[in-house]
């Protein structure tokens, strides 16, 4: 039975009777919708690109606003450049994911693209996206301060702590949000590359872990919201 010809002869006997569908059924199937495969990552990308767009616009406005303002002018220019670099990176990543969704590359090329995107590029983008929110907040503050006449950081220590905290928090939210998709893709890649299907068995435990961290995140977010509402109420009264 080792002869290839025998195997091919046997394979030819595999019929698709009972499964054959007519042209009308094929046409009606095309009206169905299916979920895009990499929706979570693309969603974070689109939101990130939106934030970077706003940041860039504010930074450009601020470079005019702080014209001749010394160090703060250079900071605004640097931030605008950073926003451009992050945006270009995000757009390239988005294009790469679109190519992945078309699924018309050869199998190994697609696997390489999957590896490149999910082992490296998405990880780098997560850092950029986490940095983009503090960048935008800083750009907004700078614009408001410019309206008031001058830029000033009243409490540098607190300011730095808030920036770092928001970076870490957004990074954690992103990682937790993307975890189901990214872990599935990594397991799939391990199986495709090394024929290692054992990791699939770890998926239920991973999901349970994810649900736990997602719940923790929700509690933290709700607590922060309540705290902010409480502080606002105290200030108002």
């Amino acid at each position: 039975m080792s002869d290839e010809h025998d195997l091919q002869a046997l394979w030819k006997m595999e019929t698709t009777d009972g499964r054959t569908v007519d042209a009308v059924d094929i046409a009606s199937s095309l009206a169905c919708h299916t979920n895009r495969q990499f929706l979570t990552v693309k969603l974070f990308l689109w939101i990130g690109l939106g934030i970077l767009g706003v940041t860039f616009a504010l930074d450009v406005a601020n470079t005019f606003g702080y014209w001749g303002g010394g160090a703060i002018w250079f900071v605004q220019v640097g931030m605008a450049l950073l926003a451009v670099v992050f945006t270009v990176y995000g757009i390239c990543l988005l294009a790469d994911i679109e190519k992945l969704e078309r699924a018309d590359e050869n199998l190994l090329e697609r696997l390489r693209r999957l590896r490149r995107i999910f082992r490296r590029r998405v990880e780098i983008w997560n850092l950029m996206w986490a940095a983009s929110v503090p960048l935008m907040i800083f750009a907004i503050n700078s614009a408001v301060d410019n309206q008031n006449g001058h830029f000033q950081i009243n409490r540098p220590g607190l300011f730095t702590a808030i920036q770092i905290a928001s970076f870490i928090f957004i990074y954690a939210v992103t990682r937790i949000g993307q975890y189901p998709l990214v872990s599935e893709i990594k397991i799939l890649m391990a199986e495709l590359e090394r024929g290692n299907g054992e990791e699939i068995a770890t998926l239920p435990a991973r999901r349970r872990r994810w649900r736990f961290w997602f719940a923790v995140l929700c509690v933290v977010l709700i607590s922060l919201l309540l705290w902010a509402a409480w502080q606002t109420w105290i200030l108002a009264h």
Binding site: Q37, A103, D104, E105, N106, L107, R110, P180, E184, I185, I187, L188, E191, L192, I200, A201, L203, P204
Partner: peptide, 24 residues
């Protein structure tokens, strides 16, 4: 060639749906 590429790539990724619904 195009047909096989798309169909096989989709079949390889379809594993994800099963992993999600019923990993073991």
């Amino acid at each position: 060639t195009w047909l096989y590429r798309v169909a096989l790539n989709t079949a390889l990724m379809h594993r994800r749906s099963r992993m999600r619904r019923n990993p073991t």
